[in-house]
């Protein structure tokens, strides 16, 4: 068993509407070992995406501790958090979030603009990432010229291009047809098995969850055993 790359202890998260407290996550305790492909399942409103956002460092817990790669991210400032995200997190969204004005190549290159890599090094990284997702021949295509499945593969290439510690996927097949969804899940499983990527995926889809090697269920903000 690998050491946990994500360690969550007594995590609570609440949102506030005016003075009304809306509890979302309740006493979450979770260890995610390095190299694990974890699927988080649960009904709508169970807190899956909130938990994913907390692990991604784009939201802050109300209380409890959350450490990723040994760093307690709740204590980081916004600036530190942004830098931390660029180094440790690759995020895959349900709706791809590709910039429509950039080609597949440029979209994948985007996270590398935050690094000190040279243009040549960036090119090598981008080409490698696109070849992993099988889109070497679509580098110059714009998002509108790609199918949904291809767009999601570009998004995955963008998520892995900077070789992050953790891949987080929020309903990555939610906007895709069955075949495309199957392709994407196969790709994520391959990234986990062949490249040893630690993946945390939120999904409604039991077939998608089958590809994960570990499934946890959330219900009403609580992790089920």
């Amino acid at each position: 068993m690998n050491a946990p790359i994500v360690k969550i202890l007594g995590l609570f998260k609440s949102y506030y509407r005016d003075s009304l407290e809306i509890p979302v996550l309740h006493d979450i305790n979770l260890d995610i070992p390095q190299g694990q492909f974890l699927a988080l399942m649960g009904p709508s409103g169970s807190g899956k995406t909130t938990l994913l956002n907390l692990i991604a460092g784009i939201d802050r817990p109300t209380s409890g501790t959350l450490a990723v790669a040994g760093e307690e991210i709740g204590k980081l400032t916004e600036q530190q958090m942004a830098k931390w995200r660029s180094r440790h997190i690759g995020f895959i969204f349900q709706f791809y979030n590709l910039l429509p004005v950039l080609t597949a190549y440029e979209n994948v290159e985007l996270p590398l603009l935050l690094t000190s890599l040279s243009r040549k090094e960036r090119k090598e990284h981008v080409e490698t990432a696109l070849s992993i997702v099988g889109l070497s021949d679509r580098m110059k295509h714009y998002p509108r010229q790609l199918s949904g499945g291809q767009e999601q593969r570009v998004a995955i290439a963008r998520a892995v291009v900077s070789d992050p510690t953790l891949l987080l996927a929020d309903e990555p097949t939610g906007d895709l047809d069955k075949n495309s969804a199957e392709d994407i899940m196969t790709l994520l499983a391959r990234l986990n098995k062949e490249y040893g990527k630690t993946i945390v995926m939120v999904t409604h889809d039991p077939r998608a969850a089958e590809k994960a090697n570990f499934v946890r269920h959330l219900d009403k903000g609580e992790l089920q055993q």
Binding site: K83, W84, R85, R87, F91, L99
Partner: peptide, 12 residues
């Protein structure tokens, strides 16, 4: 949403 996504990537 695009700006939020850019910040998710680590853009400051």
């Amino acid at each position: 949403s695009e700006n939020a996504f850019m910040r998710t990537l680590g853009f400051r």
